[in-house]
Design a protein around this nucleic acid. Sequence first.
DNA 1: AGAAATTTCTATATCGATTTAGTTTGATCC
DNA 2: GGATCAAACTAAATCGATATAGAAATTTCT
Lengths: 352, 352
Amino acid sequence: MTDPVTPLPDAPMHPDLEKPTLKTIARLSGLAVPTVSRALNDAPDIGAETKRTIRRIAAEIGYVPNRAGVRLRTGRTNVISLVLSTEHDMMNHTARLISAIAGGLQGTPYHMIVTPFFPTDDPMKPIRYIVESRSADAIIFNQVQPEDPRVAYLMERGFPFATHGRSNRADKHPYADYDNGAFARIAVEELARRGRRNIRMVAPPALHTYGRDMALGAQAAAAAAGVALSIVDGVTSDSTNAEIRARIGALVIADPSIDGIICGSTNATMATVAGMEAEGFDVGTDIDIFAKEAIPFLRFFRDRIIVLEEDVKDAGEFLARAAIQAVRQPDLPPLQMLEIPALPHPTDPSKG
Amino acid sequence: MTDPVTPLPDAPMHPDLEKPTLKTIARLSGLAVPTVSRALNDAPDIGAETKRTIRRIAAEIGYVPNRAGVRLRTGRTNVISLVLSTEHDMMNHTARLISAIAGGLQGTPYHMIVTPFFPTDDPMKPIRYIVESRSADAIIFNQVQPEDPRVAYLMERGFPFATHGRSNRADKHPYADYDNGAFARIAVEELARRGRRNIRMVAPPALHTYGRDMALGAQAAAAAAGVALSIVDGVTSDSTNAEIRARIGALVIADPSIDGIICGSTNATMATVAGMEAEGFDVGTDIDIFAKEAIPFLRFFRDRIIVLEEDVKDAGEFLARAAIQAVRQPDLPPLQMLEIPALPHPTDPSKG
DNA sequence: AGAAATTTCTATATCGATTTAGTTTGATCC
DNA sequence: GGATCAAACTAAATCGATATAGAAATTTCT
């Protein structure tokens, strides 16, 4: 009868200052709160028309479920915990992995909580904490060992997880990995193809699966190609320039006929090149360096290093999906991804 | 088909496996749930003896408050959101910053959620999302600009935050920063002291505060020292080796008397050195390079680069504390930290 | 002693969502 | 026509913690 010229206390046109909840939608639609909840969750006992109405209202007022409410009631946290070892080549993988997993989580209700642990810490501690306090729905972790206690622990409890790198039980759990064995094989074969006969590999610790894979792959390929190969203790990022030179110097003195070196990381490569050059070797002429890295960096360093890039971004995004599937469809076979390295130009010797 | 002789996955080893809640403690102590809550929160209206009893029980059974319960009731999330730009030298700072902030959060009830955003994204988006959905108690972000809209937005709303780098309003908000102006001044002075007279600076974009500070500091110091200085557009991590050489080549052709270069990052330094060496310059002899980096890396590269290290670890730990104080004691003056760079050996020209 | 104040604890409501157990309505069936 | 059944909804309980108001026990005051 009268035009409501005066603004209503709850004018639904402008979104309230308060965050909308199921109650808000219930009030606006005249339906009960559980009905709204069930409609939004697509329960079978809610009418199609009702669902449409409720969803329209929810979208209009920008309803987003309160995480604490969901978590308290259901136990679902909508959190994926990323437990990262900062040991070894921290800079090579970590930042990109974090960024990629976060990217893979975009558009999902999952948030990513990062829990780094330090070499001195017990790797089990953060895992146990998350499982016992149920502070995440799934865990992603890296630096996997063949007999990894974290894998055993989580599988035993049926707690969803995904790993960057494989364990001995990798056939039964989600993972993303780079085929380090293939990398090593390609490296040896390429060096052999270039006429190199006396190869060293600066390998990551064999404690970890990727270090072991790399060593095994290189040894097998060297035997097949009939070239000499031996594995050198890795140079860590804590080594000083002088130490590295000494290390490389000793290597050269022990056997001056070295003509190829395989390096598993940016760090190791730079240290090795610096050392070899200090010994008077010209990289690309007297010796070939075959390297792997996760972030394109070595191209700033020397043109004539042979570099394969590991696509950590791809792995991270995959791990996000794999972890979510482990949470939501635990009965499906685990998602697994193996990046197979390949030389970009199989038979084209690039010229400097 | 197969007989079900396989034993069950696992039987509960510990009978009291349920996670303890306030109710558990209430039952064990014979007190009411709110009493237990108030005792654990050290409320003034609970007797000393009662508090002692309750705390003992809580410790014995390993009680940890349910985050969802706390969050739902109080609105406190116990989450610090780290919103990181992945623009520019991702690898230099980011991983270490994440790790350091997480370290600073150890022993606190705070978890760290990482939300990277990409150069193409609107920097305001993640900030708005967090504030509107109240999904964190505080935000830490980096890549600060002088007139940063995020700073304005958060200050306007009184939302707790801390920044890595300063804005124009830095006197009023928590931050940790490195004195890039001082770095540039020291660089110019040291190069001048070594007899360099024609200096270039490969600077980060002046859009960001740190880029601006660096440029201003260098210009002032150059004027004071009476040396020539000009600023070169930064080389990004997307530049190819060839591009960089071309860039540096053009620089040398434009003025072959260049004898000093200041670089703000590992990347820029490596690219610059590679370019200069390709032009036939010997670093440390024909030209001096003065660099800054967050992760000791350049020492693997060349001995004779002059390097100052930025302590991102310190900054990260500080930011954690600063953010927590902004949440808990918003009326205290904001915690602020400025790392002042200094040359390790003021008047000792190191020998190669 | 009786009232007032203090100390210490309890009952109840609440945050927001979901689950369980109904209830209503209308259609179906014999 | 009455019973049965399905569809579509609602009421109430619940997750775990905390805020508020109030009650019981004790002490202090006049």
